[in-house]
Design a binder for these strands. Structure first.
Length: 303
DNA sequence: TTCCAGGGGTAGA
DNA sequence: TCTACCCATGGA
């Protein structure tokens, strides 16, 4: 076991980042309500499996990471990989200052900067986020958690039986029927298998989408071209690769808008879009802040 | 039994 | 661009 202390960017807050959406409770992530810790098993580039436990550090702007499962002290290469992975998961590279400045000036959004919200918890690979997003479509959150949990058992397990997220090759190695017999993803199973196969065989490189130099419209178009990814799924994925110019509306976003901004009345998507239009290139993030406001500000425990 | 969930694909207008 | 219909799954 080895304990690390990582320096987070200015203004970073652990809790609102960990709870920025439901990802912290989708395997292999786990969230401990009492301690606020986020943990997961991670497969390193050299094949070693580590269990990472991430938490707010004692000092402001510090994140504490406990690494378990491999011989310690870690080699320098493994140490560097763990630091990079944790920084990515917690969005250390996400620049939220401009969004905070904008939110500060918008009625009803001043809490965002005060709470230190705006960073999205992401997976170590875009592939993992794609697979999970696909499994949120047209199903309940409960079912999503169950499908993801079954999918994750295809990954390698550590000595305690805790699995890492399977690689595209591990998922693609099963035939579609066997995959779906295991994951029980319904019609989504074929899309999941095709996605894994495209990545494993090099036809698709979703990691590229994290390049901030890419135009959001181009990334969005490529996401929409994936089977099973419509406006909701592609819009939600955009948030996870650092582009916020799509709304990614789903039933949760519409419900949040109805409650917060429309006197409990249903609103057409064009009305919702008009509300978020003043946020410009940040509108996709503003949508999600409304969804998570109760969880982050009040600890609603809805995850 | 029917409805619906953190929707999307396809066919036909 | 819009609509109708279909798509597995499982809880309410």
């Amino acid at each position: 076991m080895q304990s690390l202390r990582l320096a987070a960017p200015s203004g970073f807050q652990f809790r609102p980042t960990a709870l920025s959406h439901g990802w912290c409770v989708l395997r292999p992530f786990a969230h401990d309500d009492a301690s606020g810790q986020v943990s997961r098993v991670q497969r390193l580039a050299d094949g070693g499996l580590v269990h990472l436990t991430m938490a707010a550090g004692e000092a402001p702007g510090e994140v504490r990471v406990v690494v378990d499962g491999l011989e310690t002290p870690l080699t320098l290469a493994r140490l560097a990989e763990v630091e990079t992975t944790v920084g990515r998961i917690l969005g250390f590279d996400q620049r939220v200052e401009d969004f905070h400045a904008l939110a500060r000036a918008m009625p009803g959004y001043d809490w965002v900067e005060r709470a230190g919200a705006g960073r999205m918890l992401v997976s170590p690979t875009v592939w993992e986020d794609l697979a999970k997003t696909l499994l949120t479509t047209n199903t309940t959150w409960r079912m999503t958690k169950d499908m993801v949990a079954r999918l994750v058992t295809l990954g390698e397990a550590d000595a305690h039986g805790r699995h890492s997220f399977p690689t595209p090759a591990q998922v693609a190695a099963l035939d579609p029927e066997a995959l779906n017999a295991h994951v029980r993803a319904g019609y989504r199973g074929a899309y999941l298998h095709a996605l894994a196969l495209d990545i494993a065989e090099g036809r698709l490189d979703p990691e590229r989408w994290r390049d901030p130099a890419l135009q959001g419209a181009d990334v969005y178009r490529e996401m929409l071209a994936l089977k099973g990814f419509g406006p909701y799924a592609a819009g939600a994925m955009m948030r996870l690769v650092g582009h916020f110019d799509e709304l990614g509306l789903d039933s949760v976003c519409r419900a949040a808008f109805r409650t917060l901004w429309n006197n409990g009345e249903p609103a057409a998507d064009r009305e919702i879009a008009a509300h978020y239009a003043p946020f410009g290139r940040w509108r996709g993030l503003a949508v999600w802040m409304d969804v998570m406001r109760d969880e982050i500000v009040n600890g609603a425990g809805s995850l």
